[in-house]
């Protein structure tokens, strides 16, 4: 996974509340076999509306998404995070997120930043014309206009995102511990291996 330290760039001033995973990626995209390419289906329904932020050339390729309350509610589908990642989103800033979504986002290298509504309102304003700066190390969101918003993050998640460590990579770092367990289990319950010849 790519390291995430500082993300700077334009942000989609989206702002919608209660965006469920069906809005992020409709169910008919679930029959795919790849995580990549789902960006095409991201916000499909909203993109049918003329003048939507996602198709506005002003914001094309923005790495930041600013959203409203309860972002990512609904089903547990991981496709929502995959779709955002494929769209090039690295940070989502909102007043709150569904737990499952922020877990899925984290697993896919996306930082979810929780800020109070006033901060969101201000960032929405700046995002219309200017870039936004997110610094994970400092846990800040700043603008060139002296705005500075501090955010909280679980230390484990911060550590993983900064180091580009995915959970699998971390667990693989414990291969020796796993190997030792396997050796012990093979002694205690030898009939378990192999399961398939």
């Amino acid at each position: 996974m790519d390291k995430l330290t500082v993300v700077e760039g334009r942000a989609y001033p989206f702002g919608m509340k209660n965006v469920d995973t069906d809005i992020v990626i409709p169910a008919h995209w679930l029959k795919t076999i790849s995580r990549s390419g789902l960006g095409k289906g991201a916000f499909e329904v909203l993109r049918k509306e003329p003048g939507n932020v996602f198709d506005d050339p002003e914001y094309a390729g923005s790495p930041i998404l600013i959203a409203g309350d309860n972002f990512g509610c609904g089903s547990s589908r991981e496709h929502a995070a995959w779709a955002l990642a494929d769209l090039g989103i690295k940070v989502v800033i909102a007043p709150s997120f569904s737990d499952i979504f922020s877990g899925n986002a984290f697993k896919n290298g996306i930082l979810t930043v929780v800020l109070p509504q006033e901060a969101i309102d201000r960032l929405m304003e700046v995002a219309q014309t200017d870039p936004i700066h997110v610094d994970l190390e400092q846990q800040t969101v700043t603008t060139q206009f002296q705005d500075r918003f501090q955010f909280e993050i679980d230390p484990f998640r911060k550590h993983c995102l900064l180091g580009g460590l995915d959970e699998i990579g971390l667990t693989l770092g414990q291969a020796d511990t796993i190997g030792a367990y396997e050796a012990r289990a093979a002694g205690e319950r030898p009939w378990l291996v192999p399961a398939v010849a």
Binding site: S76, N104, K107, E167, I168, T171
Partner: peptide, 11 residues
């Protein structure tokens, strides 16, 4: 879920 499937396959 799928990420966990991958985690189990790998680890």
């Amino acid at each position: 879920g799928t990420s966990e499937v991958e985690h189990v396959l790998a680890t």
